[in-house]
Design a protein around this nucleic acid. Structure first.
Lengths: 217, 217
DNA sequence: TCACTAGGTGACTGGCTGGTCATTTGGCGA
DNA sequence: TCGCCAAATGACCAGCCAGTCACCTAGTGA
């Protein structure tokens, strides 16, 4: 994973690109894609606007898709590494997925901007006719695909009911996103129920998803 | 529910307002709020742009919030009337909610634009700091509130596990939205599993939500 | 020290769009 | 038929912003 043979030039180039992407993520997450201005991104990254075009010749949209790439890549990696860990290979599916859900909640809590980008922009774009929607779907499907194998495995072991794995994967991710959406409605905290910790929240989501809402006798 | 004492003038006024809202809904759903132009809305509604300001003095945003009003109102009404019907009062919770889910799927399928507006814009706005976010939350909570009473009732009858009703309500709506999002990913139909009918899809969602993913012995 | 160049910069531009308002239209009462 | 007024209209304006490019800077090698 190291990048040993990289000239100072190239390293600096990468650093600058990084800085631009970091700045853009924050601005996009705050203002949304349309509401974000390149001037704001440039200012936050401490570059002139023109410089950004040296790194992202196609401008605003290229930056957005670079961020999507990183975002979905990050999620897919998180899922893959989770299931590669031996601990979770011997676990019962319910526990393995509960731990995964906890990790995902953690990931999105620590990377709040990533979560906002996912909800506000990726979601919106995927329901829009747009040249790059197909690309976007492919990126997202990497995260779904990372889930399918473990789900299939669990079904074979008889630890999961035999629904289409794709669909289960979507439901799982959907419920994590849904829970976080709910947790962010803290604008009017009177009504909202809050969990003490992310682990507790993960156990709750898992319980709904795996045990179901019906009382088990 | 009739409007008997309304002058022709007033009736025409309402008709025009309606036409504008209908046009705006389609344009917003297609292009998104930022991408939609008043010119496009005006053209679709077959009015001059200036005329729109006679009906919505505060312009674009007022139109958007009027649409949100109708949207959440419609969903809340659907839920309320569903549980007011005698048939569902005697049913077991699982069946009553399955039928509700089927109705919701139907509603969003028949009003595809409403669904897009909900996903693309309401979702986005609710995660944004904005003067009217509180208003928006209140509107959405009408739909949640309509669910809370039946859920509490079901819990009392021992037909549902005793989770916080608010949270269950959110999960339920979230799963309906999530399923529809998934069903709309039909861009690349190779992978996606499709249900033969909305009723079947409703039964599937219900089964996940109520019975859980674990095999029941 | 100087010439060269890679690349950073931000003033500028062209296109777009929300909102305005002077003008037109048409319905209605006299 | 005429005059009046409420309401419709769309040309116009002002502000905004993505993207450009002529200029500048600082690092380098001779």
């Amino acid at each position: 994973m190291e990048t040993p043979t990289l000239s100072r030039r190239d390293r600096e180039r990468l650093m600058r690109r990084r800085a631009m992407l970091d700045a853009a993520l924050v601005v996009f997450a705050q203002k949304g894609y349309e509401g974000a201005t390149l001037d704001a991104i440039a200012e936050r990254a401490e570059f002139g606007k023109g410089t950004i075009y040296n790194y992202f010749p196609d401008g605003k949209e290229e930056i957005l898709f670079a961020l999507f790439d990183e975002m979905f890549g990050g999620i897919a990696t998180l899922i893959q590494t989770h299931f590669e860990e031996e601990a979770h290979q011997s676990q019962h599916a319910r526990e393995a997925f509960r731990d995964l859900i906890a990790r995902l909640l953690n990931h999105f809590t620590e990377n709040r901007e990533t979560f906002f980008l996912l909800i506000k922009e990726a979601q919106r774009l995927m329901l829009t006719q747009h040249d790059h929607v197909a690309t976007l779907h492919r990126r997202r499907d990497r995260t779904i695909d990372a889930l399918v194998a473990p789900i299939e495995h669990a079904i074979e072991k008889g630890e999961l009911r035999a629904f289409p794995p794709q669909v289960i994967a979507h439901m799982l991710m959907g419920n994590v996103k849904g829970y976080l959406m709910y947790a962010h409605s803290e604008c009017h905290p009177e009504d909202t129920h809050e969990f003490a910790s992310l682990d507790e929240a993960a156990e709750f989501i898992t319980s709904i998803l795996f045990d179901g809402l019906l009382p088990r006798d």
